[in-house]
């Protein structure tokens, strides 16, 4: 997994030039107008929070909730880092939107054949050895890309060597770890970052789902046992009734057994 890529966004370095937004839109052929929030035509945006510029995009979780939620496996975490979306599998249930702890995926509500839209970290470009379009376009180095381990080390180096930084790398623990990291000199909650759970979210459902074959075997055995008891009780009741009637001086008419 050493080739797993990750992006580091250093909020202290972002000047809000929106080159990343523009590059992303250009690559996908979206209309070039600036948008305030993530949308089906804006897979990354710069949000202004006070005098800070906060880039939003898919966090590319290590163990993504969306991929575990997707019933047809349209969303996948690739070994190279990006979480990708296979539109040809999608049935449009939108459970990924419900599941995402960062509320990132967007849906094409106004289309008749609607799909999910989200950043895929330019998986195709990266496979060809290129950088994600947004990172490549960044003129200040606020966004950088690299191997996940090295990127994490770089983020650690920056926040340890400079006292202005908040001593937390957003994404190192959130949702069990992501492939997009943020470092900042302003507390993250003030910048609109959600306090996502620290464990990988799919573990929450894995426990509940358990082992289906075991459940079926145990449940089947239990139900068969109940059925056996019920049958047995009915047989005993029948036998007792017959004994009774045999002992009785006047035998009731029993058509089947006479």
């Amino acid at each position: 997994m050493e080739t797993t890529k990750a992006i580091l966004v250093d909020i202290t370095k972002c000047i809000g030039c929106r080159s990343c937004e523009q590059a992303c839109k250009e690559l996908h052929g979206f209309p070039m107008e600036t948008e305030a929030k993530l949308s089906v035509t804006a897979l990354t945006v710069i949000e202004e929070r006070g005098d800070k510029f906060v880039r939003r995009m898919c966090m590319h979780c290590q163990d993504p909730a969306c991929a575990s939620a997707c019933l047809v496996g349209a969303l996948k975490k690739t070994a190279a880092g990006p979480v990708t979306y296979d539109a040809s599998k999608c049935i449009g249930c939108r459970y990924c939107l419900v599941a995402c702890p960062f509320s990132v995926p967007r849906y094409e509500w106004s289309k008749l054949v609607p799909y999910v839209k989200k950043c895929d970290m330019c998986a195709e470009r990266q496979a060809k050895g290129q950088q994600p379009a947004c990172v490549e376009a960044c003129p200040t180095g606020a966004s950088i890309v690299g191997n996940r381990e090295e990127i994490l080390e770089e983020a650690e180096r920056r926040i340890l060597n400079d006292s202005k930084y908040v001593k937390h790398i957003y994404g190192s623990e959130e949702a069990g770890g992501t492939s997009v990291f943020f470092i900042s000199d302003v507390p993250f909650e003030k910048l609109g970052f959600v306090a996502a759970p620290r464990q990988p979210l799919p573990t929450l459902t894995a426990n509940a789902l358990g082992d289906t074959p075991t459940v079926i075997l145990m449940g089947g055995a239990l139900l068969s046992g109940l059925y056996w008891i019920t049958q047995r009780r009915a047989e005993v009741a029948m036998a007792e009734a017959q004994e009774h009637s045999a002992a009785a001086p006047v035998r009731p008419i029993d058509k089947e057994r006479s």
Binding site: C70, G73, C90
Partner: peptide
């Protein structure tokens, strides 16, 4: 595409 789950499996999905 309602039939997709019949052939496209993701056992970790509750919805599946």
């Amino acid at each position: 595409r309602i039939w997709h789950p019949i052939v496209m499996w993701n056992r970790s999905s509750v919805l599946f």
